[in-house]
């Protein structure tokens, strides 16, 4: 009897460790970023023309990152923002982002690729979230890591240009930069 209990206990522990390895560290970073994105929806006000109509969802687009689409979808599942449901859509690189309220660009592509994707979305009232190494004129929010913690930077010029009102609560926690489109 004792041996069986011990065996079962061992199985649980081994199983646990197995699961532990599956939960890669990146997983947490992705979840934290997803939680931030959801918070961005809450703390940004879109111009009336861009705000979803009654009963229509906020649309969050994830460009070229299928696993993150899943993570984000799970995080926002059944949640609402000011009474609107939240929808997550997977977008191929280069696809139009005009119907998105928020667009998230996976880290990785070159600075150039990020810049051109962001430039394509500029002027449509989209909260673009990217992860380039430095601020980009057309990007509204940039994620970066600081001492292993996820931080974000808001380009106030871009936010203004997109007619987005960012609440002071979010502003307070953000690093702020002003990078305008080169003439």
């Amino acid at each position: 009897m004792k041996a069986r209990v011990r065996g079962a206990l061992l199985a649980v522990i081994v199983l646990g460790i197995g699961c532990g390895n599956a939960d890669a560290q990146d997983d947490l970073e992705q979840k934290v970023k997803a939680a931030f994105l959801f918070n961005f929806l809450k703390f940004v006000t879109w111009p009336p023309a861009r705000a979803p109509e009654d009963g229509r969802p906020y649309v969050m687009c994830v460009v070229d990152d299928e696993p993150f689409t899943q993570t984000l979808a799970q995080v926002v599942r059944d949640k609402t923002v000011s009474g609107h449901p939240v929808q997550v859509q997977d977008r191929a690189p280069g696809a139009s982002l005009r119907d998105c309220h928020l667009a998230y660009l996976a880290p990785g592509p070159s600075m150039q690729a990020t810049e051109s994707a962001l430039a394509g979305a500029a002027g449509a009232g989209i909260v673009t979230v990217h992860q380039a190494d430095a601020a980009v004129p057309s990007g509204v929010i940039r994620f970066f890591l600081d001492q292993q913690r996820v931080r974000f930077e808001i380009n106030t010029v871009a936010a203004q240009r997109e007619n987005l009102h960012v609440s002071s609560r979010l502003m307070e926690l953000a690093e702020r930069v002003q990078v305008s489109t080169p003439p």
Binding site: Q25, V32, A35, F38, V76, Q148, R151, L173
Partner: peptide, 14 residues
């Protein structure tokens, strides 16, 4: 994680 405040999110060692 959306239960956490923004301040808490910023504190997580990812």
């Amino acid at each position: 994680l959306t239960e956490l405040s923004l301040d808490d999110l910023m504190r997580i060692d990812v």
